[in-house]
């Protein structure tokens, strides 16, 4: 199966940020989103993940696993409890492979609150294989990771691609992936139209 979007228009708040976003990914391909800060990389990823409804076009969030800036870990729970929770939510039985891939074995019984920023990030990324979804949406996944872990993460993503998965990444770091294409997001920048001052305050709620 391929993953494609055509003529997607994305918004952040009331403002349409991107228009006419189109791309297609074949199994095993990764798409790296480029563009300066504020060009709409996160907005595009949130739209693809189904968190922000697109202004135009359609997305298929059911096939996507999303990693955001925030780690989404519960500090009072251990690493194993955090991962087991997400595994059950996504209907995956075994957290073992994900733990192995990110070398989380020694951390399994530590509380997430006691981890360093990089260890939290690793735990958060270990959730990706647990989702069992083909398209990974990665928003700056390597923040606070050391070079060794970045390389390890690159291998995990490469393994996912080799197994027929796909990935859309917003990153400035080279993960050493074989099949990557770059997509410059600033190409799709929509002409900034501020919403009319008299716009209906309920429009957002009912649309």
């Amino acid at each position: 199966m391929t993953y494609a979007v055509t003529d997607l228009a994305c918004r952040r708040g009331q403002v349409t940020v991107l228009r006419g976003v189109s791309f297609a990914l074949a199994p095993g391909e990764a798409l790296v989103l480029r563009g300066p800060n504020g060009s709409g990389k996160t907005t595009l990823l949130r739209t693809l993940a189904g968190l922000t409804p697109p202004v135009e076009g359609a997305v298929d969030p059911e096939t996507c696993a999303y990693v955001a800036h925030a780690d989404g870990l519960k500090g009072q729970l251990t690493v194993a409890e955090n991962l087991a929770f997400w595994a059950r939510i996504f209907g995956t039985a075994d957290i073992g492979p994900a733990v192995g891939a990110f070398d989380l074995g020694p951390l399994l019984h530590r509380r997430a609150a006691d981890l360093s920023a990089g260890q939290k990030r690793r735990t958060s990324l270990a959730r990706l294989p647990l989702t069992g979804r083909p398209v990974w949406l990665l928003d700056e996944p390597t923040v606070s990771l050391d070079t060794e872990t970045v390389a390890r993460f690159g291998q995990v993503v490469a393994g996912h691609l080799a197994a027929g998965g796909m990935a859309v990444l917003a990153t400035h770091i080279d993960l050493g992936l074989p099949e990557t294409r770059a997509l410059d997001v600033s190409r799709f920048a929509a002409a900034r139209q501020e919403p009319a001052a008299t716009s209906d305050p309920f429009a957002e709620a009912v649309e």
Binding site: A65, A70, D71, G72, K74, G91
Partner: peptide
């Protein structure tokens, strides 16, 4: 919402 779990729950199959 603070720790980002709500975003992830919204993308989960529930």
């Amino acid at each position: 919402l603070e720790d980002g779990s709500l975003d992830l729950l919204a993308t989960a199959p529930i």
